[in-house]
Design a protein around this nucleic acid. Structure first.
Length: 782
DNA sequence: GGGCCCGCAGGG
DNA sequence: CCCTGCGGGCCC
């Protein structure tokens, strides 16, 4: 794409990219929006007055569609402009090591530069963190700490929304350095979750010093989970494909509404926290978050729906994080022994599960939401597994003609949880927000909204969401465990949880290759963080292109595919010139040094980490708190505190904190600030894609030969021993199971109790070579 | 990556 | 009892 205007800013070294000279300070103009310096003499229409200089917007930002959220603080932009120059000076000082540079940058940021921004606390360490965060990490568009941070391959961090808006205006270069943004990153930006946590930690250290457990610790990883056992021999043969459910670890009935509180979590006493992840739906089920195994909706038509899963099963779904549009179930032809089928072939109606959702809408019940990695079109979906994202309310239900041409039930879900969503760097939960505009409502039929006051609502006084009316009384009983299995699952869980919180924290900032805290972190376009050296090492010796010769003839060289060490994305382009995410690096350095400080002072006092004192005001106190919480599970008192602390957190934040947050809450933005234009733009784009896809695949008619008969069968329950349960937790060998599995493999063909017509035959050709599939440990780096 | 199977759990 | 279902493993 040729630049029509030939207007170019200064590059990273301050050299004008147009005339190639380094302009004097007074010849430089800093864009109020993207903070990029420009050479005034090379502008086709430079500002005429001094006042307009202060408010100057560069040609890139000053586009007709330019409705970027612009910070009101132009002064601080100017300050940052100087800062950037100073930082560049440090960067270009070759006499310094990277560590020294980081330190210098920190000093710079915590020094005079920010004294104009009101008085932060005088406590030195904290100031460092904040200065680093507030200074270098700010999103260049809105000048705030990035909410839902995304990272460009050139190592610059922005809010997802600001980034999308920028891209939506047709910009394909980084707003900070003008490096090209790869198309995939532009169309499918991914949240940089390490940064989410970094920002939250730093905010926590500022506003929440003496309060309890920061929410940051709620990120529990898969490997912390105990494994489940299979209940049937058949299930064992095919791994989890046909597994029976494992134990339910929480003591809620299957028709429990709302979050799962600590009192129903006898194992950990912390309840299910937002951001918890599981390997798959079965595991998610074990923690009571979403019970159905396959179905996306958990609910009863005359009672309400308790939870939904967003897994990309329906094309009409639209995910905006704090709100989303969900599609009902049904209208599909599941004959032929299918469990799912992407093709819609009849209209959906408000019955069964769809009606259950309708009830939850009318009553204003909280509905738990899990997102699955299978939802590929959403920026908010987890990368792998299933994640609990908190509770939402269904504000409206209607029907519309779906993408596939048949009527679908539609639901507007809006988040209403007391804990922050996993993708936001906000450290507090939701506030009531205005409903987003839904263009498709114009064509909606059967619209229903809530008439009565909602059962689950925001309590202004308490500053949190709570039951305003008693939750519907359960019609079901709690799954109970016998004493023996309770004991064993407890054991398994405890073992899984002995990882200290500090380890967990470090893990958040750890390189996905060396597993140590990153040095020189780089962020791939697919949002994975590595040490620069590790990443480069992983591809050492590989060339970007493959030369091909055949019989003396030189063929066209081929590009080598280089997959991200953490996911299948081809990152060969990124690897050509991976840029250190300096902003993230600064944060890590800062957190690290504080951890070390704290540690050494701790050693002098007391070695027992579980006996932390509550007095220290440093953020590392909270590390200890967390650790206590996690490791001393069997103390009598333990963590009723965690809930209280959580609450305290919320309220104190509300009190203490700023008005900024209320004005830039996601949805307010959508509703008030024309953010919709972008959203709609994006929406249209994707739905157009869908239309196109649809056009080519819709008549993929599946033959519906005979009526499929699926006779239900008695299940065979096999007692599983405890050893079997523990076996899979980690390093334990698996040879025993192989044997058993192999034995089962033989009778596969015989076992067809279903009178499935077309499929009996295929059962026979199960390959004898592979009857045993042994579950691999999820956690080894792939 | 797509298609095909099919155990299982829950609703009605 | 029958039907449904935003899974998961395997084969190609």
């Amino acid at each position: 794409m040729a630049h029509v205007s030939q207007q170019l800013p200064c590059d990273g070294d301050g050299v004008c990219m147009r005339c190639k000279v380094t302009p004097m300070e007074e010849e430089k103009l800093t864009c109020k929006t993207c903070v990029t310096p420009w050479h005034a003499n090379c502008l086709s229409s430079p500002p005429e007055t001094l006042a307009s200089t202060l408010q100057w917007e560069c040609p890139d930002c000053d586009s007709p569609a330019g409705d970027l959220p612009v910070a009101s603080a132009t002064v601080s932009s100017a300050v940052d402009g100087d800062l950037i120059a100073a930082i560049r000076a440090i960067e270009s000082d070759s006499s310094l090591t990277e560590q020294q540079k980081a330190k210098k940058r920190q000093e710079l940021m915590s020094g005079k530069a920010h004294s104009s921004e009101g008085n932060c606390s005088n406590e030195k360490g904290m100031k460092d963190v904040l200065a680093v965060l507030g200074g270098s990490l700010n999103c260049s568009f809105c000048m705030q700490l990035p909410d839902r941070p995304v990272t460009t391959p050139c190592g610059h961090n922005f809010c997802l929304k600001c980034f999308q808006k920028w891209v939506g205006q047709g910009k394909h270069s980084c707003a900070k350095c003008r490096c090209t943004i790869p198309p995939k990153m532009a169309s499918q930006p991914r949240i940089n979750s390490a940064l989410v946590i970094a920002i939250r930690m730093a905010k926590m250290s500022k506003s929440n010093l003496s309060e309890g457990l920061p929410k940051v610790y709620q990120f529990v990883h898969n490997q912390d989970r105990p494994d489940k056992a299979f209940t049937t021999d058949r299930a064992q043969k095919s791994g989890k494909a046909n597994a029976a459910c494992g134990k339910i670890f929480v003591t809620i009935p299957p028709d429990h509404f709302g979050p799962i509180p600590a009192e129903n979590d006898p194992e950990r006493n912390q309840g299910v926290l937002v951001g918890e992840c599981w390997e798959d739906r079965l595991e998610c089920r074990q923690w009571g978050v979403h019970f159905p195994h396959v179905s996306g909706i958990a609910g009863q038509s005359d009672y309400g729906a308790q939870s939904v899963a967003l897994s990309g099963g329906y094309l009409d779904d639209e995910d905006h994080g704090e709100w989303f549009l969900y599609t009902g179930s049904g209208g599909r032809d599941l004959s032929g022994n299918k469990r799912t089928n992407k093709d819609q072939s009849s209209d959906q109606k408000f019955e069964k599960s769809n009606k259950a959702l309708l009830v939850s809408c009318k009553k204003g019940y909280p509905v738990r939401v899990v997102r699955s990695h299978k939802e590929k079109r959403s920026s908010y979906a987890p990368e792998k597994g299933v994640r609990y994202d908190g509770v939402y309310r269904i504000e409206k239900c209607w029907r519309k003609v779906g993408i596939q041409g048949f009527k679908v039930c539609r639901y507007l879900f809006v988040r209403c949880d007391n804990e922050p969503a996993p993708w936001t760097s906000d450290e507090h939960g939701d506030k009531p927000r205005p409903l987003p505009p839904i263009p498709e409502l114009k064509k909606a039929t059967d619209l229903s909204e809530r008439k009565e006051s909602p059962s689950w609502d925001f309590d202004e006084e308490a500053g949190c969401w709570k039951w305003k009316k008693p939750p519907p009384s359960s019609k079901k009983s709690v799954a109970t465990m016998d004493a023996e299995s309770q004991k064993s699952s407890k054991k398994a869980i405890r073992r899984a949880q002995t990882m200290s919180v500090k380890e967990k924290l470090l893990k958040e900032f750890s390189c996905l290759i060396c597993r140590k805290v990153m040095t020189l972190p780089v962020t791939t376009p697919c949002a994975h963080n590595f040490c620069k050296s590790c990443l480069e090492g992983a591809f050492a010796g590989k060339t970007f292109v493959r030369e091909r010769n055949r019989g003396g003839r030189t063929l066209r060289s081929q590009k080598n595919v280089m997959n991200c060490p953490s996911c299948p994305t081809d990152i060969s382009d990124f690897l050509q010139n991976p840029q250190v995410n300096r902003e993230l690096m600064d944060v890590i350095e800062s957190l690290k040094s504080k951890t070390e400080e704290k540690e050494s002072s701790e050693k002098e006092e007391d070695h027992d980490l579980s006996e932390s004192t509550e007095t220290s005001k440093e953020m590392l106190t909270s590390v200890d708190d967390g650790m206590k919480n996690e490791t001393s599970m069997d103390d009598g008192m333990k963590n009723e505190t965690s809930v209280d602390d959580g609450m305290k957190n919320e309220t104190s934040l509300d009190d203490g904190m700023k008005n900024k947050t209320s004005s830039d809450d996601g949805m307010l933005d959508d509703g008030m600030k024309n953010e919709t234009s972008l959203d709609d733009g994006m929406k249209n784009e994707t739905s157009m894609d869908d239309d196109m896809k649809n056009g080519t695949s819709i008549n993929d008619n599946t033959e519906t030969k005979g009526k499929p008969t699926r006779t239900s069968k008695r299940k065979k329950v096999v007692e599983k021993s405890d050893s079997q349960i523990t076996e899979r937790t980690n390093e334990v060998p698996v040879e025993k199971r192989r044997k058993k599995a192999a034995g089962d493999g033989q009778c596969v063909g015989v076992k067809t109790r279903n009178s499935r017509k077309a499929h009996g035959a295929s059962d026979g050709n199960v390959s004898p070579s592979s009857p045993l599939h042994v579950q691999s440990d999820e956690n080894l780096s792939q």
